[in-house]
Design a protein around this nucleic acid. Structure first.
Lengths: 168, 168
DNA sequence: AGGAAATATTTTATACTTAAAATGATTTGG
DNA sequence: CCAAATCATTTTAAGTATAAAATATTTCCT
């Protein structure tokens, strides 16, 4: 890093150490971001080209595929880690296009239940299969015997970050 | 429109094995995405709250911080892995706010050079320090002795994906 | 030289994303 | 029993992102 053009006074020595420590964490973060961006960009491109579909739409369907009896709308932002307001137009479009239904609960009229249609499920399955194949293709050169190890590390990383976010 | 491209590198296996393999790769992808989303969301929140700044803007400044003599505008989309059109309004705003300058090259009037201002650099340094501290805080619970290992794995993963993207 | 290809950047159209305010429905506490 | 707090969802405003078309400039090829 080209930070040290001026000589650092003795009094800021711990500052320099601090920056050295930050560097390792920044490297990890940049690698994580680079991998995600790389894969995400390619997946988006293929979704668009092959199915004229977007990843956020696919992600919603993926959640609903696991729930044959549908899902309370409010569950989606939690599971997908996006804001609630974001989902409104996405769900709107999926409904308009016939992939899912949205029905108000009659126990609590604030609540809405979203559920994949038969036709939606059929199309989703086709896309999910391609999605798996694309990932397999993109990850083919990564040694198969190190998959589980990396998954485990990332699980721990995620747990550690979650813990850190809980603390304050 | 019809790109009859079969992306099935494991075509000799039966469907069950294929799906089982896809599952491991999907798990890895979802973990990667979850970690990135979690960290990115928190960083964005803090940038906004502490500095009323966004991450894309910070990312541009981070590139320019390494280049005291400025950077050809066209380098930014490559380094940041975003589209060129995306950067136009971001650079516009950074110029308007006095963080950077944009000057046309007089050797080639298509080309523009962007360069951080003295004031921009000062503010950037302050933000970069906080950014490092936030990352340190978020990653504090991840064992320090496994940092380098994970960084190495991610480097390999990135290289593998890049290779896979090169192939066709 | 003169027109075609290439290059750098911007514009346009569309979609995603968040934060914060607004809306409408339900629960709760005095 | 009703006003206030709470909750689920939508709307709004601003910013980010892409792909594709447009613009402006330079280079390349006879």
């Amino acid at each position: 890093m080209a930070l040290a053009k001026e000589s650092t006074p003795v009094s800021t020595r711990n500052e320099t150490d601090q920056e050295a420590e930050y560097r390792a964490q920044t490297r990890l973060w940049l690698r994580l971001l680079a991998c995600t961006t790389l894969i995400e960009g390619e997946l988006r491109r293929r979704f668009r080209e092959e199915f004229d579909f977007t990843m956020p739409r696919f992600d919603v369907l993926a959640q609903l595929d696991r729930e044959p009896s549908g899902l309370v709308l409010g569950e989606l932002p939690k599971r997908l880690m996006v804001s609630a307001g974001n989902l409104t137009p996405i769900v709107d479009r999926l409904v308009a296009d016939g992939y899912i239904t949205r029905t108000a609960s009659n126990l609590d009229r604030r609540v809405q239940i979203v559920c994949m249609t038969v036709e939606g499920r059929k199309i989703f399955r086709r896309m999910a299969k391609s999605h798996g194949a694309w990932l397999a293709e993109l990850l083919a050169d990564f040694p198969a015997d190190r998959f589980d190890g990396l998954i485990g590390e990332l699980d721990e990383l995620k747990a550690a970050v979650r813990d850190a976010l809980q603390k304050p």
